[in-house]
Design a protein around this nucleic acid. Structure first.
Lengths: 375, 375
DNA sequence: TTGAAAGCGCTACCAT
DNA sequence: ATGGTAGCGCTTTCAA
């Protein structure tokens, strides 16, 4: 209600010039300690807080970074990692006086009209790019107006901005090996949205990993990675005469949808079908047994991405930031294959000759409770 | 990369005054059609987009609203409804040229230092208040600096801002009746965070509803509404010698945690214990059977709240906005009580004499599959 | 209808 | 060390 307190009010009260107030309050040099103290006092008494608007205009900085959530607002809840990611961003920004601006959802007409306006009006000093696609139209847009950006998990060739990327290959290979050693030979794959770079990479990694262990993914079910998508996939795959003994999904949501439907069709998890997800969303713990998945670190990714972006605001192109690799969330949805050809159980490893990785593997294969069933 | 195109550039190119450009581009009257067209053309050719900074300073509006997520950034992922809510807000804002600014998490020292700064620097034109607490310190802060606000689901007395509120009483009463008619007499309650107005209200509504049907909630387990909290509650409640036959939780997360742990302890759902959640989070569908809960409408709430806030930017206090009441998400976690005292099954209702509400009730009580078990 | 000019609140530069 | 002042890019008022 009270009238705005401006820098001029503070200057008047402290009996100094406006410029001195600015210098004093921004911890710049060129102000005597005595004067600085007097100014601080005056500012406090008046409850002065510098207007971001004036500051923004004159300093040519918005003190804000943008996150462009590239999906329709009504589908925001499809991204279960969004809150954690945003939390990470926030945790970094708030230590530096920056804030996060959410820039509109998907462009309706794909002409990016509104989107470009948001970038061009200099509301933010830089943006975080999520859900990056092949030939993402945002990239030329950003280059065009010269807005700094940081990519999230997008190692596509020639990407012009620094990238925060979490390696998932180790986790995937371990899981692949686990599946193969558990006897799985018919492994299906549920894809994520086709245009996403990340979906595509994940798929490649799985394909290569399984191939290296002698298994060709088959069939591949194209989808959008949603829960319903997983349900559909289960319907389709498990109805066939030779259903897969294991399913790998590009997202936890799809994995959970698959699990639900497969169960409804009478398949037990993991005795009849093993399931592996990807992401590490909280809902994975609701499944019983808990979903085995590749746990990424959205909070950490958000924090690192924000930090990288803030740095980018100054300099030119910075090096990519690696993160600790994604880990495996063990869970209980991997079990021995019923079609196992070599039923020889691995000899119990002794402590000494125990390969640490193999040890992990064995832990990951949960012994089916009713393991005395026929197979 | 290219230099910024300013309004002066457009004016020069079109051969008119700056003020004319402003008027023309903002669809104000006082500009001839001919001039307006010429100006538009010049602006297009130059790729001019008005700087929000200059506009903001001179028009005294930020064209942004803030959302203060009142929890630590690391706990953002505890709010499973956040994405949907934010999506709703976004869907409304983007039609009006506004954006959403996320204002820092919880104040560390509870002195609201950083928080007040964010409000006071006029970065936003108004804020959405979520997770409102009793005697919420944000309220005097907002009143102090005269920033408009809208409350989400906070019907506390004397709340000085308009509120968007979704009625849950009907849903709760129906569920209460369902539980009681299913024979449940020992019903436990898992609370949400104590200081939240919403938690408190939900609890009151459940208490009153069940009391009206002759059941006193007992015991009440205080908690924070998290998944782990639900797990703890299960541990505590189901270990006793007289475990409840039904549990009502103030959040789906707690309900799901409870379900998981209860199962691990050997209790079947819903045969041994019925569970009712609150919120309608996506993860509820992962539980098998699906979680019975009160489904709120976070997207709609977000959209309405944003709309209300935008209106508030002009006028004084506006009336509260009611929403369609929360509905029940049927699910399968309610079953007949094992301790049922009056085993008389209700006579099959004919189409004619069927009370629509009672009809709903019957649907909600899923017949336990092994209903021929002893009870 | 059009144009000139005064701010908006701040930063930063240049005198003093 | 301090003070004066020219912008930053826009809106808005007031003359012409």
């Amino acid at each position: 209600m009270s009238e705005r307190v401006t820098i001029a009010d503070v200057a008047r009260r402290a009996g100094v010039a406006i410029s001195s107030v600015s210098s004093a309050l921004n911890d710049r040099s060129g102000v005597s300690e005595e004067t600085r103290r007097r100014i601080r006092l005056a500012a406090d008494e008046l409850g002065y807080v510098a207007s971001i608007r004036g500051r923004s205009l004159s300093s040519d900085r918005a003190y804000a970074v943008g996150l462009i959530v590239r999906r329709a607002p009504a589908a925001f809840d499809r991204d279960s990692l969004l809150p954690a990611f945003v939390g990470g961003v926030q945790s970094m920004l708030e230590t530096r006086g920056y804030v996060l601006v959410l820039l509109g959802g998907a462009p309706v007409d794909d002409k990016l009209q509104g989107f470009r306006r948001l970038m061009a009006d200099r509301r933010v000093d830089g943006v975080l790019l999520q859900d990056i696609r092949h030939n993402d139209p945002r990239i030329p847009g950003l280059l065009d107006i010269g807005l700094p950006a940081v990519g999230i998990d997008a190692h596509s060739d020639g990407f012009p901005f620094p990238v925060v990327h979490q390696d998932c290959n180790a986790a995937i290979r371990t899981l692949a090996r686990t599946l193969v050693e558990a006897g799985h030979g018919r492994i299906a794959y549920l894809t994520g949205p086709r245009p996403h770079v990340r979906s595509w990479r994940t798929r490649m990694l799985w394909r290569e990993a399984l191939r290296d262990y002698g298994v060709v993914i088959d069939p591949v079910v194209e989808g959008d990675g949603s829960f319903e998508d997983g349900e559909r996939a289960a319907e389709q795959l498990m109805a066939g005469r030779e259903p897969p003994t294991a399913v790998v999904a590009a997202s936890d949501a799809a994995a959970l949808g698959f699990a639900r439907r497969a169960r409804a069709l009478g398949f037990r998890i993991p005795q009849d079908v093993s399931i592996v997800g990807f992401d590490g969303v909280p809902a994975g713990r609701v499944l019983d047994p808990t979903l085995t998945t590749v746990r990424t670190s959205p909070f950490l990714i958000g924090a690192k991405a924000a930090a990288l972006l803030l740095e980018s605001l100054g300099e030119r192109k910075l090096p990519d930031v690696p993160l600790p690799p994604a880990e495996i969330e063990p869970g209980g949805t991997i079990g021995p294959s019923r079609n196992r050809e070599r039923p020889a159980p691995p000899p119990p490893p002794t402590a000494l000759e125990c390969d640490p990785i193999a040890g992990t593997l064995n832990m990951l294969v949960s012994r089916a409770e009713g393991s005395d069933t026929a197979f």
